[in-house]
C-alpha cells in the first residue's frame, strides 16, 4: 500500500528521513497550498524534482544558473526545442560548452532548491508511488538526502520561530516613527531593499512577497530582520475590509456605550 498522509502529521523532513532509511524507490507527490511537487527517488537518493505542472527543461535550468548565455539559450530554443534533456545534455557536452559534471551539478542544485522550497510547506497532503520514476528522457541525479535532511531540520526550526514572530502574512508593514533613523545609513541587502520599496500600510506582507517573488520563509526572514532592527512595525492593512464586526456593546448608542463603560469602571473600583 502506498504511503500517504498529511503534512501536519508528517513533515517533509520526516518523509525524507523515512525514504532515506528505507532506501525507497518511487515518487513522492506533495499537494501543497498552491502547487504540486513531484520528488523521485532511487534507492533512497533524490533522482529528480519538479514543482508545478510545467517541466523546467535543462536549457532553462542552465540559463538561469548562468551556464548558458542568452544567445546560446535563444539558439537552443529556436533550433533544438524538440529534443529531450538527455539529448541536449549530450549535445552540449560534445560541443564542448559544458562538462557532464557541470550539468549534473546544476541539476542537483536545482532539485535541492525545490526540496528547500518544500520545507516551508506545512499544509497539504502527500503520497508515495512505489517504483514510479521520471520518464527516461529526463536526466536524473543521485543526491544523498542526509545534507538535505539536516538543512531541512534547521529550516523547520527557523520556520517555526519565524511563524511565532510573524503569525500572519495578511498584516501590513509601516515604517516606525523614529526620527533619528535614516534608512540610507542602514546596510541593507538587495533583497531587503526590494522589500523596503514595497512597505506601505496598503500592502500586506503576502502582497509584498508576491511582488518580490519570495516564498513564505524568505519574506518572513527579511521582515523579521527589519522588525528586529526597529525599522518597521506590523499594522493592519489600510483599506482592507475590517474583520467581520461582531457586536461588542449591547447597544448602538454612543452615549449608552460610554455610560456602560463608566458603570464597569465604578463596579471594578468597588470590588
Amino acid at each position: 500500500m502506498a504511503l500517504r498522509g498529511n503534512l501536519r502529521d508528517f513533515t517533509i523532513t520526516q518523509l525524507l528521513n523515512l525514504i532515506n532509511l528505507a532506501r525507497k524507490t518511487g515518487t513522492l507527490v506533495v499537494d501543497g497550498p498552491s502547487d504540486t511537487a513531484h520528488l523521485a527517488f532511487r534507492d533512497g537518493k533524490l533522482a529528480y524534482a519538479q514543482i508545478g505542472k510545467t517541466v523546467t527543461g535543462l536549457a532553462v535550468i542552465l540559463h538561469n544558473a548562468n551556464k548558458l548565455s542568452s544567445g546560446q539559450y535563444k539558439a537552443i530554443q529556436q533550433r533544438a526545442s524538440n529534443i529531450s534533456d538527455k539529448e541536449l545534455g549530450l549535445l552540449l557536452i560534445n560541443a564542448g560548452y559544458l562538462t557532464k559534471e557541470d550539468i549534473l551539478t546544476q541539476l542537483q542544485l536545482y532539485f535541492a532548491g525545490i526540496v528547500h522550497r518544500l520545507f516551508t510547506w506545512v499544509e497539504g497532503s502527500f503520497h508515495f508511488e512505489n517504483e514510479m520514476l521520471p520518464p527516461d528522457d529526463r536526466i536524473s541525479v543521485r543526491l544523498d538526502l542526509e545534507n538535505l535532511i539536516i538543512e531541512g531540520s534547521r529550516q523547520l526550526r527557523e520556520w517555526e520561530q519565524l511563524q511565532d514572530e510573524i503569525p500572519s502574512l495578511d498584516m501590513a508593514l509601516k515604517f516606525t516613527d523614529r526620527p533619528g533613523v535614516n534608512l540610507r545609513n542602514v546596510n541593507l541587502s538587495v533583497e531587503e531593499w526590494r522589500v523596503v520599496s514595497y512597505i506601505n500600510p496598503k500592502n500586506t506582507i503576502k502582497q509584498i512577497a508576491n511582488a518580490t517573488k519570495m516564498n513564505d520563509l524568505e519574506i518572513r526572514r527579511i521582515v523579521y530582520g527589519l522588525l528586529q532592527a526597529g525599522l518597521v512595525e506590523i499594522c493592519r492593512p489600510e483599506g482592507a475590509s475590517p474583520a467581520p464586526q461582531v457586536r461588542v456593546f449591547p447597544t448602538e448608542d454612543r452615549d449608552e456605550q460610554k455610560s456602560l463603560v463608566n458603570r464597569l469602571i465604578s463596579r471594578i473600583r468597588s470590588l
Binding site: 511565532d164 514572530e165 503569525p167 500572519s168 493592519r236
Partner: peptide, 17 residues
Amino acid sequence: FREARSILETFRAYAPT
C-alpha cells in the same frame, strides 16, 4: 516572551480593540 509577543499580534489581527 516571544510567544507572548506572537499571541499579542494574533489577537490584534482578530480585532482592533
